[in-house]
Structures are given as C-alpha cells and as structure tokens.
Design a protein around this nucleic acid. Structure first.
Lengths: 219, 219, 219, 219
DNA sequence: TATGAATGAGCATTCATTCAT
DNA sequence: TATGAATGAATGCTCATTCAT
C-alpha cells in the first residue's frame, strides 16, 4: 500500500497500543449500540475503528471479551459521573437529587453508552450478565445505602426496612425507564426528568418512612 | 407418507391450523425465553413444537415474524390480565392497586412470557421495536389515563400535567424493574410488591398533584 | 436454481442419506489424500462431493470427525481385504504370503486410501492418532500372532519370543515402506513386491527361530 | 532502542548471523517436533528462539523454507552419524550392523530430530516432499550400495539384482518402523533393536542372494 | 397438509507475512 | 541489526430459509 492509498484511507498507522485500544472500544460501543451484540459484526467494528480485525483480537480478545470491555468501561464512566455529581456534604435528598441529575446528564451526553449498557447488556444471557448484573447491583446498593441512611435517622419500622432494597431496585428501574422514554422525547431537559422523578420517589419514600401509608380500602 | 408411518411416529397430523399455530407459539415462547432471540434456533423451536420447520414458515413466517407473533400474543395476554384485574367502579388508587396486583400475579404465573416481553423484546433493535414499543406505549397510556383522571379531579397545574406521561413511564419502569428483581427474590409475594410500589408512587404522586413539592434547597 | 442450471451442474438432488454420505466420504478421501489433512479445506471437499458444506456437517460432523470417518472406512476396507486374502487352511508362510499379496493389491488399487491411511493419518498428533494407532496395532497384532504360531511350533527360545512383537512391527513397517516406494516405481507388480518381502522376512525369521543367528563378529 | 532498553530486556542482541540461525533452527526443530508442521506457529518459534519474527524471515525465509532448513540440517546430522558409525574396513554385514547401531543410537539421542524427520516431513505433500524424498533416497542408496556390494561378491542373479533397491527401501522402512515402535517401548536398548533387525534382514538377504528362496507352494 | 433434504450467505477467528521505526 | 505494530486472506462452522416430494 503506497503513500497515496494510505492517505486516501485517512488512517494513521503505528499508534501506541492504548490509543488503538481506545479507538477500538469507541468503535465497538458505537456498533454494539447501533445493532446489538449479536447483529454487530467484528468486520464492521474493525471498519469503523479503522483497524484490522487481527488487531482487535490481539488487543481486546474475542467478541465476547470486547463486549465485556465495553460494558466495563461505560459502566465505570457512568458510575464515576454519578459519584462525581454527588455532594456528600449535603443531605440525603440533595445527594439523590444530584445523583439523578448526574445520571440523566450522562445519559443525555452518551446515548450510545447508555444503549449498550441498558438495552444490550441486560438482555444477553450468559457471561456478560455477570458483569452487568454486578454493575447494576452496585448502583442499587448505592441507592439503597442512601435510603437506609435517611430512613434510619427518622426511625425505620421493620416492614420499611425490608422494603428499602426493593425500593432501591424500583428507583433504579424508574430512572432507567425514564431514560429510555427520554430517547423518544428529546425536548425534555435532564433537569426536568430529575425533578419529576425526585418528586415522585422522594415524597413517596418520605411518607412511607413516616408511617403515612396507603392501604387498600378493601381487599 | 402413509397412515402406518404416521402412526409409527406417534404424532397426530393434519391438525387444524389454529391448533398448530398455538403449538408453535407455545414452543417459540419457551425457547425464546430460555435462550433469547438470537440464540434461539428455528431447529429447536420446531423440535419443541413437534412440527417441521417448513410448517412454521408456512404458518407464521420468518423468525422475525414468529418473534413478533409471540410478543403480540403475550403482551395481549398481559394487558388483558391487567385490564381484567381493574375494577372500574372503584377509585383511581384502588384501580392502580388492582392493576399492579394483576400485573405481578401475571408475571409470577407466566415467567416465560415475561422474560420474552421484557428481556428479549426490549433489547432488540429494528423491526420488533415497533411492535414492542407500541405495546409498551399502550401500557403507559393506560397508566397515564389513570393518573390524569385522578389529577384532573383535584385540579392539576400545568407542570404536573406535563409530567404525568413521564411519571407513567417511570411507573411502568418501576414495575418492570421490580418484576425483574423479584426473579431473584422468590420468597416475596406479589401482594408485597404491589403494596410497596403503591406506597412509593401513589403517595408521591398524591403529594405532587396536591402541590406539595420537593424542591432542591439550592441549585 | 432452475432445471437447466441443475443439469448444467450435473448434480442429482434429494438423494437418500447413505448415498450422500458415501459421496462425501469418497470426496474427502480424495481431497485429504491429495493435500493432507490441514491443507484440505471443507470448501474443496464439498465442491468435489457436489454437496454443500452444511450437508457435510449435518451428516459427518466436524472436519476432525470427517477425517476420522475416512480413516475408519479405509482402514476397515484394508483390513477386510487382507483378511479376505488369507487362507486359514494353509500353513503360516502361505498365510503371510497371501496376506502380503492382498495388502499390495489393495494399495495398488486404492492409492488414495493408502495415502490417507499412511501419510496423513500417521503424522497427525491428537485425536486421530488414537484411531490410527489402534488400526496399526491391530495389523501388527495380526502379524505377531502369525509369527508366534509359527515359532511356537518349532520351539521358540526366550529372546526370540521377546522379539516377535518388534519383528511384527518391523515387518509391517517394511510393507508400508515398500508400498510407499512402489508409488514411485509403478512398473513393478504387486506380486513381485510380495515375493521380495516374503523372501526377506520369512527366510530371516525362519533362520532366527531355528537358532541360526547373526552375531557381530566383534563388538 | 537504546542500550539501556536492550539491557533491561536481558537479551543479547546483535549476535553474528550463524549463531542466530542456529538459535532459530533449534527452536524450530523443537516446535515442529512438538506440534507438527501445521500446528506449529511462527509466533511460538520466535518466542522459543528468543528472536523476533522478522528476523526469522530475514534469515531463513518463509515457514516452508524454515521447515526445509530443519529437515536438511537434521537429515544431514543423521546421515553423518550413520556414516561415521560405519567401519568401511569391515565386511558388509558388520558395516550394516554398525550402521544400524549408529542409526538407532542417533534416534535415541535425538528424538525431536527424528520426529521431525519421520513423522512430520513424510506426511506433508508438496514442496518439502522433494527435500525429504531426496534425503530418504540417499539413505536408501546407501543401503542399496551395501547390498549390491555384498551380492555382487557372491554372484547375484537377475531377479535379485532387480530386487535390491526394493529391499533397501524395505530395510530403511523396517528401521524407521522399529524406531517408531521404540518410542513406546523405552526399556529396549538400541543394541537389541539393531540385533533383531540384523538377524531378520541379513539372514533373509543372505538366503536370498544364495539362491535359497521361498516360493509359494501353489499359486 | 407436511417434511426430509439441501443450501446461500455470513461470521468469528487465526496465521503467515510485512511495514515503519 | 532488530522489532512492535499491523494486515490480507483464509477457514471452520452455523443458521435461517426453501425445494422436491
């Protein structure tokens, strides 16, 4: 391949390893996000990355490995963004508020990352599941800790204690669901989303731990 | 193939079309639920159904079509179950309550259906999306209608109006998420789930429409 | 593919399974014989067989399985030919004679089979080895039995007993080697080969068991 | 790459060409012997040799060339060992005896060389064949010369003359086969092997050239 | 109606080989 | 001299899909 061709292809050659890895991961996230794990082909990824397939295998391993690497990187980014958004010096409600805002901001700015994490990773059985389930569990635990801390202060009865984990899961699920809904309603701001969700769950949770309960009027 | 052979194989042949279709759909749901859309093979489905592959293609079209048919049937069942659970003569909170209970009951009794609907269908890009998105939209609309009816009675300010759809989406998402979480915590009853979620969202929603709002203490 | 094309390709379609299997095995032996196991491609085999690759995998399994099936079939044929050639009612020398003749005749008439058995199969480490080593062991055992029978009659001293197995191996090796040599000297008849080898080994063996030994004149 | 780096790697660089070549060939023989030609990878060879792949290509050419070089070196060593073992001042039988002993000794001491020569080289079709066939021809010629010399002395009838080459091939084959058999019976000494084979073929050959022939009692 | 037989097309993966430094 | 970085080109294998009966 002569100089002319090289330039026509617009590819830079002989880059250091970590740069290439980043290139590859970026491409992989794009492609996995667009077509899903199974429909994504290594050929397309290599093409989008501007790198030949053997490099992918040399650096990131099999398709499965590559997907796992994507998940790990994006999940880490997401959690870091959320963690960075939280102000630990504030009260729990503000922590949740900032956490939610950070979450929606991240999703808004990294649609592809989100799609890979939420849509693709969740649905695959087998090896990734572990990875993703673990990440999701970390998120739920994070929220649960927040809820417990809050509830404990106010005094938490037994049933409520038992419920917090479920509520945390529900909360995470709401956020995920809202994020998805957002994809089809781009005129909404991330702030509005966070605000709505905050009102929904925080007030509800507050009532719950205070003993104000909704009870079916008749079974 | 003569009668003798037919009997030797022990299968009943020449069944009416709708029976065959049900056989096939049942098998397809089982297999899709177990392995996911892509990992499911038409071979396995035909084997589980006890029907040859050409029959599947003749009756239900391509793999994609087949999957769509599964989604449609299961979603319909789910919505019917929920609708049937609702007592229109009761107040909105009781309607939601019974709806949630019916939802969780259905999920508990039809794990496979749920897995196909939630895990598989959500993650596939492309043609199914339409189908699934439509179904999901119907569910959200159902909840939204409920919320709007309630809110309207009490007088709904503008921002709240705008939020109800999002809240409906969030609510549906919470329920889905809780249902998933349930798969790993089978000792919980469907009643408990419904109760927790009801408390979380109904009280929150009640506060919201009544004007009691949570507002970040400082931006 | 219309009728014309079908006829142009000269392929008969929808044959019963065992016919197809034979076709495939025939082609595989040809191709393995020509290029060796590793250089043989499933594509070429399928092309030579006039059958698509999926049929090969459906009927005969993986490349390794296919190769194993070739080995087994050809080895069986060879052993059957040799066994059929032997006249059990005759004396041991005549048995060996007829056995050798049958062997060389078979090799002469089935060069490709021989090449696959001898050249290809012997050299592969791993799974086939077992198969082939077993076949070779059977051949050696056959010869050994013959030698032992003969020797026992005449009274066999200890060292000679111990040597028969080695001699059997050597004899089989000579025959194999001669067969190979023959490939490059096609003007020789199988009868001549058998005769030479018979004289070489039978007379030598006779001397050996009779106690006429060659002993190095000086170490 | 500067001096510091060079020393950090702990490898001695800039060695004279022939030393590098020997390193490479040693590694190649080891690897080819262990995995066979096709399963051996240039990567592994370069790793075992402690030399980068481009060096291998620069010094010894393609994989095929490299294999050829291995064959040539090892075959030469073997032939030299055998030749060195022969005492030309002794009679033909003693020459063969010493030749065989030298052969088996070499095999015993250089299993890897032997494996490459016998197992790998023989089975590959194509380019190597030439190389290997040539080497084998030299070995056969060596033996043939010996036989002819012997036979001529005693007077050799026409048929026997014609047969010597075949017998030489058979002899070489027996030795090879015995050597293989030996790999699975390590308690045998090389002397025993040589002795058995000597008795088998020398006596047989002696009979043959003396006119004592084995003739089938009835065709 | 019903199916065994058959295939086109694609995909993950590997490896000998060669630049650019 | 010496090599890390990079790739073209195959190859084994699978699967949705469709004939011919």
């Amino acid at each position: 391949m002569d100089v002319e061709q090289r330039q026509r292809h617009g590819r830079v050659r002989r880059l250091p390893r970590d740069v290439r890895e980043r290139q590859i991961l970026d491409a992989a996230v794009r492609v996995f996000s667009a077509h899903g794990y199974h429909n994504a082909s290594m050929d397309e990824i290599s093409e989008v990355a501007g790198v030949s397939k053997p490099m992918i295998y040399a650096y990131l391993g099999s398709k499965e490995d590559l997907f796992g690497a994507c998940i790990r990187r994006e999940a880490t980014r997401l959690l870091e963004a959320v963690t960075a958004g939280i102000r630990v010096e504030l009260g729990p409600d503000m922590q949740l508020w900032h956490g939610l805002r950070a979450f929606f901001r991240f999703v808004g700015e990294h649609r592809e990352s989100w799609r890979v994490l939420h849509r693709q990773a969740t649905s695959q059985g087998g090896p990734f599941s572990d990875e993703v389930v673990a990440m999701r569990a970390r998120a739920i635990a994070l929220v649960d800790a927040l809820l417990v801390r809050t509830a404990t202060k106010r005094g938490l009865d037994e049933q409520a204690t038992r419920a917090t984990e479920a509520l945390a899961a529900a909360l995470v699920g709401s956020a995920e669901s809202l994020a998805d809904w957002w994809l089809d309603h781009p005129d909404i701001t991330d702030k509005m989303l966070a605000s709505w969700l905050m009102n929904l769950v925080w007030m509800g949770f507050g009532d719950l731990v205070e003993g104000t309960q909704w009870i079916p009027s008749a079974e």
